[in-house]
Structures are given as C-alpha cells and as structure tokens.
C-alpha cells in the first residue's frame, strides 16, 4: 500500500512557541486516521501544512505523491479540506454554496454534480435554505458535501463534529466510512473517544510531537496502563477519597461504575485496599479514554 500522506520532521513555530516540533506522519491510502491531542497540540497547524495553507519552517514530504511545499496548488485540486470553523457563505443558500464550489473547481456538468452530492448527503430538502440558518449538524453536512464535490482522494477534516449532536455525529461518521469504502483516505481530528474508536488508526499529538500511534486496540493495549473498575453507590464520595492517593493517575465516574487507572499496579492496589473493602474491584482492559486522560495529564513522560 502506498502512503497518501508521508511527511517527515515537520516544524512550525509562531514566535517562541514550537507549534509543530519534528512531526513524522504516514497515512496509508484508504485509511481513516484519527488525529488526537489536546487543544493547541498542533493538529490544525499540521493539517494546514498538509494542504499548503501554512509553510513549514522545516521538514517536508509528500501528500498524494506531491511535494507539500512545491506542489501545494496541485495538492489542493485533489484534497478536500474541512475547516474547524464553518467557512462557507452564510448569506448564500445551500445550492448556491455548492454551485460556487463546483464552479471554482471547474467541475464539468456542474448542475449534475451538485444534484448528485445533494442527494448523497441528504440535503435535498434544504437546497434553498440560507447556509446561515442551518443548524450545526446540517452545516457540517453541507461543509462535507462541499469538500467532496470534486471527488478528492484525500479528505482533511479538522474537528468536523465539534458541537454537533450524537445522532448527527453518527450519521456523519457513517458517511465518512461509506466514502472510505470507495478508496478515499481520511485524516480527521477529534476530541471524541467514540469517534477515535471508529478510526482505523489513531495518532496522538502532544506539544507538536507524535506521542502514540496505532489501532485503537494497540494504543490501549500498549499503554501499560492498569485499570480497575468497581460498581456501587455513592461513587462520587469514593472518587473524592481516591483522588490524590499515590499511584492513582485518573479517577472517573461512569454512571454506576468507577474507573481508576495508573501505571503502578501495586500502588493502585494499595489505594483500593485503603477504602476498607466497601467496593469490589475488577481489573479491566484500559479504555481509550483512560489512555488519553493519562497522556493528557502526563505529556512529559509519554513513551514514543
């Protein structure tokens, strides 16, 4: 399999801040790659460098086999980039926005192409509505439609589902999987764990550096994180007692269950015993969420 994205040692600094700091990234063709990391970890800047909107200070590589610095204009013809903020024209209708995009890409049979994408994205009932009057979910759908109108080979999605309800998110991801089945490569940044789990591979960034990558299962398994789970009542009070005990890195209540996680098994067991047996603890495989909270809280000790 060839790589749709293959960049090495990317650097970008704004003033004194190294936003992207030696990032090497490879995404295979047809893959859905999840791009994770805290706010400000360099996800958006990396995506902008991939489509030539920001010039890297150092490093380089290829995107769809084209040089990201020299061939940026050619790359733009073959990628779809969906910005974090809705960036189509709110004073144009859905069909006017799509028609504009189709014309800018000089798509032959513009009308047919717009009609087809409207049908595929389920926008048919809203073609005459002003984009500014759409709800968040429909705006995202319009943006996605506009990004794939010219049949790109690579889709760069920057937090596409931020602020969108669960049902709309699910539908959005169904569309993404549907397109990936046709061979489209997708790089998508997100903060949602359920979305991360739907990715073929995830890449975790921290302070502009790649920290962890692999399938969601690999990332969870290789984290060496020990997780205990207990069910019971008054879990919020128990959680308060556990927080801050040596070895306990994260404590989280999920409804009627309590998760604690840490790297040091012995310390974790001592912490649970200190409660005096009021709860029954089982060891469970670490959840992706536990892993990311662990990574978020300890970026300095993260393993490559």
């Amino acid at each position: 399999m060839t790589a749709a994205i293959d960049v090495r040692d990317l650097h970008k600094r704004y003033g004194e801040r190294r936003v992207v700091d030696g990032l090497t990234l490879s995404v295979a063709e047809g893959e859905i790659c999840g791009f994770l990391g805290a706010n400000g970890s360099g996800k958006t800047t990396t995506i902008r460098m991939l489509c030539g909107l920001v010039k890297p200070d150092g490093g380089g590589g290829t995107c769809l086999g084209l040089d990201i610095i020299r061939d940026a204009p050619k790359i733009r013809l073959q990628i779809g980039y969906m910005t974090q903020r809705f960036s189509f024209y709110e004073d144009l209708t859905v069909s006017e926005n799509l028609d504009f995009v189709a014309a800018v890409y000089e798509i032959p049979n513009r009308r047919e192409a717009v009609k087809a994408i409207v049908a595929r994205m389920g926008l048919a009932d809203r073609t005459d509505q002003l984009a500014g009057q759409l709800s968040g979910g429909w705006k995202q759908r319009l943006a996605l439609a506009a990004c794939v109108l010219h049949k790109p080979k690579l889709l760069l999605l920057d937090e596409p589902t931020a602020g969108v309800d669960a049902k709309a998110r699910r539908e959005f991801w169904d569309l993404i999987h549907d397109m990936a089945a046709d061979g489209l490569t997708v790089l998508v940044s997100t903060h949602y764990m359920d979305e991360a789990e739907r990715c073929g591979r995830i890449v975790y960034l921290s302070d502009g550096k790649l920290v962890v990558q692999g399938t969601p299962e690999e990332v969870a398994r290789n984290s060496n994180l020990v997780t205990f789970r207990a069910a019971g009542a008054d879990l919020d009070l128990v959680a308060r007692r556990l927080r801050g005990l040596p070895g306990v890195e994260s404590v989280a209540v999920f409804g009627s269950a309590l998760h604690i996680a840490g790297m040091d098994r012995a310390a974790l067991e001592r912490a649970t015993e200190s409660l005096g047996g009021i709860l029954v603890w089982h060891e469970v495989p670490p959840q992706l969420e536990d892993v990311f909270i662990h990574l978020l809280s300890r970026p300095d000790k993260a393993a490559p």
Binding site: R76, L77, T83, F88, E90, V104, E106
Partner: peptide
C-alpha cells in the same frame, strides 16, 4: 473575519 478566507485559499481559485 468570517473564516471563509481559509476555505477560499484551500480551493484552486
């Protein structure tokens, strides 16, 4: 200001 410039720049225009 509306953020549409980023989009416009990413397109082939």
């Amino acid at each position: 200001e509306r953020g549409t410039m980023e989009n416009l720049l990413a397109m082939p225009v």
